[in-house]
Amino acid sequence: MPRKIALTVLVVLGAVVMFFPFLWTVVTSLSSQTGLSATPSLIPADPSLEAYRELFGNTPFARVVLNSVGLAVATTVLQLVTSATAAYVFSRMPFRGRGVVFAVYLATMMIPIQVLIVPLFVQMRALGLVDTYLGVLLPGVASAFGVFLLRQAMNSVPRELDEAATLDGAGHLRIFSRIVLPLVGPALATLTVFSFMSSWNSFLWPLVILRTDELQTLPLALAGLQGQYTTQWDVMMAGSVVSILPMLAIYLTAQKYVIQGVAGTGIK
């Protein structure tokens, strides 16, 4: 019993430590400049939405949010399609050298994005895609992690289901869409959250490939706020809250499936 109480206290303390920065960000975004100069408090003395009005009224932040949403959704959808189809091939369609190809594919996960920035930029420039949405999107179309995650989930689906469907006249496309995909739902939900989060928080590649303010993504716009609103912490924190809320909503919606997917469960 004492051990259980101690573990509970540790978990609660850990949760408080993790949640406090987000709470402080929200409180700061609702505090006026006068309130910020007063004694710090978790309850704003004069709460106001003025920082959000300033953010969306005097900066192109609405356009920036739409840019990030569009790119994140497109990246997520493309990664789901490419990862699911590649994972099915590695899991269900044997061919010579499959293990070697899969190992090489996974080895690309070890290469940091900083190493690829220059060759990627040269390639995008040759294609005329610098300062375009497509230039931001193309490097994230495929995901080695997504293929690995979905392949592991598909390997846990019994092969007897494939054999039964084959006896009924089903081909690979029907087995893939009607049998395998529904049974790896938790893994798909996990990849959805990870893909959206990766695109939403991406900073280095958009910084290199984009030039105009109209095409900026949210991380770039947040970095720009530091120069424009250096001392207006409420406006900067309002931008941070706007960047956090979509990810928080997506995770809370898919939390159950993410836990199942990470645990490696592919069958309900």
Rank of each mutant, 00 (worst) to 15 (best):
M237V: 04
L218N: 03
T190P: 00
I209N: 06
S195R: 05
V242A: 04
V208S: 05
S198Q: 12
A223W: 12
P186E: 01
G227S: 08
L222T: 08
M236N: 07
L191Q: 13
E214I: 14
H172L: 09
D168C: 02
A238D: 05
V184W: 02
D234K: 04
V193N: 01
T212E: 15
L173C: 05
G185W: 15
S243K: 00
Q232M: 10
W205P: 04
L204T: 14
D234A: 05
L173Q: 04
S202L: 13
W200F: 10
A238S: 09
S195E: 08
V180R: 09
H172Y: 13
W233Q: 12
L207F: 15
L183P: 01
G224P: 09
V184R: 02
Q226T: 11
N201S: 14
W205S: 03
V180L: 14
I179H: 08
I175A: 01
L210M: 13
L173E: 03
L173D: 04
V242M: 05
G171P: 00
T190A: 01
M237F: 15
F194S: 07
L210W: 13
W205T: 04
L191W: 02
V208E: 11
I175Y: 02
L188T: 05
L222S: 06
L191P: 02
D168E: 15
L218K: 00
L222F: 12
T231C: 05
L225Q: 09
T231Q: 14
L225G: 04
S177V: 11
P219K: 11
G224A: 09
E214W: 12
L210C: 07
